[in-house]
Computed example of a mutant assay.
Amino acid sequence: MAEGSTILETPFEFDTDAALEHLRSVDKPLGKLIDRVGPFKMELKRTPSTFGALAEAIVYQQLTGKAAATIFGRVCALFPASPDGPTPALVVGATDAQLRGAGLSQSKLASMRDLATRTLAGEIPPLEELRGMDDDAIVERLTRVRGIGRWTVEMLLMFRLGRPDVWPVDDYGIKKGFAFTFKKAELPTRDDLHRRGARWKPFRSVASWYLWRAAELAPASK
């Protein structure tokens, strides 16, 4: 099946009940958080292609959700004949003026073009291939694209591919939720997160989702 015609609707490939049981058994404070928040309700996001997921991620970087959605909608509107949004060939064929006019910054325009060029060159694995790769291999391959860092790929692993053991230690929400859950006066270091997170394997994605909920429960910083 062609890259542009694949829709990701993959359910979680792990037992979420078993994940919650494991997390409760290995970490009492985390178990209390799970009980407070309630059922695991993380949802996977549909995407037509690896390119589509990363193109959207580029647009959303460093913007509020509403502003990013508006700009991404304008980018998609440039290509009304493409129901799944921009494709690599369409982006390569578009002018800088068109893409900048839709709201892309110069930096994001350069990232989008690099992504499109690499996809057309066969450097970006299609979804079917990604599903057969391990997490580290996906991170290594996709972070070659200009403007795509580890965090962006980690979000793809979690929310597009449904991987169970992603641990985004550089995410501010994770740090804030961790400090709240474990009653820390300061935000944790990466080493703190790696040490505590080791006991949560192989379900650190589930723990991450609950820590994001903890960040929402935490009082605002003064």
Rank of each mutant, 00 (worst) to 15 (best):
R146K: 13
W167K: 11
A116C: 09
M133T: 07
I138L: 06
W151T: 01
R160M: 13
R150E: 15
A179S: 15
I148M: 03
E129Q: 14
R118W: 03
I124M: 05
D170Y: 08
D171E: 15
G173Y: 02
A137D: 15
L109M: 13
G149Q: 09
S105A: 11
K176N: 11
P164L: 06
L120C: 08
T95C: 08
E123F: 12
G132H: 14
G101T: 05
P80M: 02
S107T: 14
C76D: 12
A77T: 04
L142A: 04
L127H: 13
L78I: 02
P126E: 08
M155F: 09
V166Q: 01
G177Y: 01
M158T: 04
T117D: 14
G73D: 03
I174T: 12
D135A: 10
T87E: 07
I174R: 10
K175Q: 14
F79Y: 13
T119L: 05
I148D: 01
K176M: 14
R113L: 11
L78Y: 02
W167L: 12
T119W: 03
P88C: 04
G122V: 02
L156T: 02
K108H: 11
D135T: 07
A179R: 12
F180Y: 15
P125Q: 08
G147M: 04
T143Y: 08
W167E: 09
V92D: 12
D136T: 14
K176G: 03
P126L: 01
S107Y: 14
L156G: 02
D171L: 11
E123D: 15
T119F: 08
P168G: 09
A97R: 14
A137E: 15
I174G: 06
L104A: 00
G132N: 13
D171I: 11
V91G: 02
L109Q: 07
V92G: 11
D171M: 08
D134P: 03
L120T: 01
L161Q: 05
P86I: 03
D136C: 09
L104G: 00
T143L: 11
D171W: 07
G177P: 06
I124S: 02
G132Y: 12
D134G: 09
L161A: 05
P80K: 08
A102I: 00
M155I: 10
P168W: 07
M158F: 10
R131F: 14
M155W: 04
L157I: 05
V153L: 08
D114C: 07
I174P: 04
T87N: 05
F180E: 11
L157M: 07
R160H: 14
A81F: 13
D84M: 13
P86G: 12
K108C: 07
E140P: 08
R113H: 09
I124R: 01
R141I: 13
G103N: 05
G149S: 06
I138S: 05
P80F: 02
R113I: 06
P168N: 11
L161E: 03
V92C: 15
F180S: 10
M112S: 08
E129V: 15
A116F: 03
V145E: 05
R141Q: 12
P83K: 10
V169K: 14
L130C: 11
Q98D: 14
P83H: 06
W167N: 04
V166K: 02
T87C: 06
R146E: 06
G103L: 01
D165N: 13
D136N: 13
R113K: 09
G85T: 01
G177C: 09
P83R: 10
G173N: 07
